[in-house]
């Protein structure tokens, strides 16, 4: 565990907590894409299958359980408890356009043709694109609440920090995983436009508003 990896995980954890608190405190999930949240639930479920048969560390198990339960809780809050506040008119991204191609890609390009390995690879590919419905929603409405921007910033930073962690691990441990690295790069690049707006607008106290 290096500092980049730890900061990445904490950033990821912070993003999830921000989102849950926002929904809980405001009793509303307006501006949040339920489609992205469903994709994240699929990502964690298919990635953390090893939770039942592989023990890595207490930290690893703990974080996996937190990510899984927080993600299912978010989906529950959005589609059940606070359903009335869900922006379904704007959340129109077709998730099958992400799920099916990433699944086919995982079948074709993986480390090992086993069920668990293909599902892990699928989760990595899908995660890299899972934020697209959320970014699509923001671009459709043309704005995002500050709290939603903080959520997106923390969530985007997490994979960026993982990239630094992978550079570190390559040199320090001779460890690298090309599938994770390429997908992580794609994932981080998708946030670049948002990072720019976040730094130039939200951090200066302005609302994140896209040019008309």
């Amino acid at each position: 565990m290096n500092i980049f990896r730890l900061l990445g995980d904490l950033s990821h954890l912070l993003a999830i907590i921000i989102l849950l608190l926002k929904i809980w405190k405001t009793r509303s999930c307006a501006g949040i894409s339920g489609k992205s949240q469903i994709l994240f639930a699929i990502v964690y479920t298919t990635r953390y299958l090893d939770l039942v048969n592989t023990y890595i560390s207490a930290y690893n198990t703990f974080m996996k359980i937190i990510f899984l339960s927080a993600s299912y809780t978010t989906v529950y809050l959005m589609y059940m408890k606070f359903k009335a506040t869900y922006d379904h008119n704007h959340d129109t991204f077709r998730i099958e356009f992400l799920v099916l191609p990433t699944f086919v890609l995982a079948l074709l390009i993986n480390h090992e043709p086993s069920v668990v390995e293909v599902l892990w690879t699928f989760s990595i590919y899908l995660e890299s694109l899972a934020i697209l419905p959320q970014l699509f929603l923001v671009s459709k409405t043309g704005e995002a609440e500050s709290i939603t921007s903080h959520y997106l910033f923390a969530l985007g930073s997490y994979r960026g920090l993982y990239l630094l962690n992978w550079v570190y691990r390559y040199y320090a441990e001779d460890h690298y995983d090309l599938i994770a690295i390429v997908a992580g790069l794609v994932q981080t690049v998708l946030y670049c436009d948002f990072f720019y707006l976040y730094i130039t607008k939200v951090l200066k106290g302005k609302k994140l508003q896209l040019p008309a």
């Binding site: 592989t54 690893n60 996996k64 090992e112 993982y162 460890h175």
Partner: peptide, 10 residues
């Protein structure tokens, strides 16, 4: 590299 398949990351 033998630990490629040890998924110690999240």
């Amino acid at each position: 590299i033998d630990d490629v398949n040890l998924k110690d990351e999240l």
